[in-house]
Design a protein around this nucleic acid. Structure first.
Lengths: 204, 204
DNA sequence: TTGCAAACCGACCGACCGGTCTGTATACTT
DNA sequence: AAGTATACAGACCGGTCGGTCGGTTTGCAA
């Protein structure tokens, strides 16, 4: 990464990755067309296969380099609050308002890929599992911290609560995506809100 | 449906439908191969295209005739109880125990198809929406009945609760599918159990 | 300045895709 | 018994797929 040439090559690689991520997000991995990606980028097939040995390897790199990083940031600000439960609540409300266009009708990239590829390709499954593990770890840490600080009931398992929250989010996003109607998301998420409120009250 | 020939034709049609449903469940619609379906059935391409004008029409028929009917029955016994909330609880526990093999690693057929096809093909989306609408209607009716009978808090909207329950189920199934670990399902579903219990207590 | 390898181009490949079409066997009508 | 339409068989079609490979450009080291 010192030469002008290596820098340009890296830019090309990143362009391919983001174009591939886009295409995979739109139509899924199996239906994603190499030719379509190349057409959108205006580069040749040789360029792509210079950077990636196969379509599968490209897909793996998209998960590792794009999707992992993307999901790594979304919840950051919500969880870094003094009260992470309140942070989650506000994030959900904001998300419900902003759910439109692509994020509404295409849903969550990592969920899409998980549903499509995890039964079919172990490599994908393991990489997606890493993304989920990281996601779970972040939320779990925040909730465990909240428990320690007395902001959350301690008669519940923070790890299980985390799985539950993630599942609700994914499920609600999926329902709204199919209905192409963000009101469905709002309706489903109200239950999660109620649950979160219930987590706040001490169990005494 | 009176002739021997028409009866045989109907059998063939149903065989094609179930084989197609199987293949679609395994790898998704777009990746489902007509040739693979034919190979599994041991029939010719002419037979398939005699009964269905196109792959897409076959997919539509699978949703209408197979998936709709399948989801139509699963929740039936749980909701027909005197106390549907209790019925849901027990169904969830049973489901958590029986989640293995195909239903674990392939998840929910209708959710898979929804995530894959609803952004890509409006015909699929509308048909899947019908399945969800039917599902929602059944649960909603049961919960509204429970509210009338005083078995459930009436300060919550039964329709929204229904969306929430469905979303949780789908999300938990999806998480477990990716992890190929039914413990994840159990962990996530505990939150839903707690929520259901919370629905039982009157809000006074 | 020259040699060279990295970066990229694009024609080409075989495999497989969904779909068509002609042929045929036969249950049913008349 | 003859005729016919239905149900199915399977060779074949154009197109697209992921992937390959020889050729060309070009930044850079020697």
């Amino acid at each position: 990464m010192v030469n002008q040439r290596e820098i340009q090559a890296e830019i090309t690689r990143e362009n391919i990755l983001s174009a591939a991520a886009e295409e995979i997000y739109r139509v899924g991995f199996q239906a994603a067309s190499i030719a379509e990606i190349l057409k959108n980028l205006g580069i040749s097939k040789g360029a792509l296969y210079h950077h990636f040995p196969s379509k599968r390897a490209l897909g793996y790199a998209v998960v590792d380099d794009i999707f992992y990083a993307a999901t790594d940031q979304v919840w950051e600000s919500a969880l870094n609050r003094d009260d992470p439960i309140l942070g989650l609540r506000e994030m959900l409300e904001e998300k419900a308002d902003k759910l439109e266009g692509r994020s509404l009708c295409c849903g969550c990239p990592i969920n899409n890929l998980a549903q499509e590829m995890s039964p079919v390709d172990e490599g994908f499954r393991l990489r997606i599992e890493k993304v989920y593990a990281n996601w779970h770890r972040r939320v779990h840490n925040a909730l465990a911290g909240a428990q320690q600080r007395g902001l959350m009931r301690d008669d519940v398992d923070a790890s299980e609560v985390t799985y539950f929250i993630i599942a609700c989010m994914q499920g609600a996003t999926g329902l709204a995506k199919n209905a192409q109607n963000c009101d469905i998301f709002k309706a489903a998420i109200k239950g999660l809100m109620m649950y979160l409120d219930d987590l706040r009250k001490p169990s005494t």
